[in-house]
Each structure stands twice: as C-alpha cells, then as structure tokens.
C-alpha cells in the first residue's frame, strides 16, 4: 500500500485535534496516547549521537534509507514529547527525500500547537523538524554525488 502524502496525513491530524476543542489537558493526554503507540527505539540506539540538540527533554532520532525514501525512528524520555515526536514520524517517515525537504508543516499552526506546548517546547519541536530535514538534505546530496 502506498504511503499517504504528507499533506493528507497533516489533514488527518488537524481533524483529530479539532475534536479536542482546544482543551489543553485533553491535548496532552492525546499526545501521550500517540506517544505510547510509537515504536520505541532500542536502548542501544538511545545514545548521545542520536540526540536532537535544542530540546529540553531528551529526543533520539534515527534514520534508515530505502532508495529515495527516508524512514525515521524516534523516542523521548518524556511522554508528551514522545507524542509530539510521533506526529512528525507519522508525517515524515517513509516519505520521499524531496518531499521531506520541501514539506510545509502547516498542521503546527492549524492545531494551535504553540498554545498547548508553549514557546520553550515549540523551539524544541522546531529543532526536531530541522534535524529531520537536515538528514533528508544530507541523504539527497549523497545520492547526487553517487549519481554523478
């Protein structure tokens, strides 16, 4: 089965969050549930070199390449952050490298994330996205070098 597009998944997430009616506590619990569903990383992958810099809590991010797509595996030591990470994994994992690089993650604004995660966590969230895009860009340039 083909993986739904980045925007289709974003729209699904926006829809799900709209049911929470802006209730911060419910959004937290929902994120925790999502986090619990995320496949945990092996303990051996929870190492400093996989840590995303700029997050208040610990977030580990690992990538695997498969032709022109990139798979993300991630984990966090805090439950709500893990939920946040799971959203990004759901959207960006197993997508084409170009699509990851060019992704416009409008869902962040549309679900009003700033309101329930605050500025400090928003910065951490932005760091996660940046790290994912950097992996995609690095992979792309590696592929291009190989091709030439």
């Amino acid at each position: 089965m083909q993986k739904p597009s980045i925007n289709d998944i974003q729209d699904e997430i926006i829809e799900a969050f709209s049911l929470l009616d802006g209730d911060v506590e419910m959004a937290n619990f929902y994120l925790m549930e999502l986090g619990q569903k995320l496949k945990p990383l092996d303990e051996s992958d929870k190492v400093d070199e996989n840590l995303v810099k700029g997050c208040q809590s610990k977030v580990w991010l690992k990538t695997e390449f498969d032709k022109d797509t990139l798979r993300f595996n991630a984990d966090s030591n805090t439950a709500i952050t893990k939920g946040l990470v799971s959203l990004l994994v759901k959207i960006l994992s197993e997508q084409k490298v170009d699509d990851i690089i060019n992704a416009d993650l409008y869902f962040i604004h549309r679900i009003g994330m700033n309101r329930f995660i605050g500025t400090q966590r928003s910065n951490g969230f932005a760091a996660m996205i940046k790290q994912m895009k950097i992996y995609a860009i690095a992979y792309k340039s590696k592929m291009e070098r190989k091709a030439s």
């Binding site: 911060v24 506590e25 959004a27 937290n28």
Partner: peptide, 20 residues
C-alpha cells in the same frame, strides 16, 4: 513519570509548578 510531563499536565490544570 518524567517531571516535564508532570509540569505540563499540571499547567493544563492551571497549576504553575517548576520542573527541572
């Protein structure tokens, strides 16, 4: 339970605690 999670969930209930 990680202290950050406690802090965020308590904030959702209007309680300002410090974590870290």
């Amino acid at each position: 339970i990680h202290h950050f999670d406690i802090g965020m969930m308590m904030d959702a209930r209007g309680v300002a605690l410090r974590t870290g």
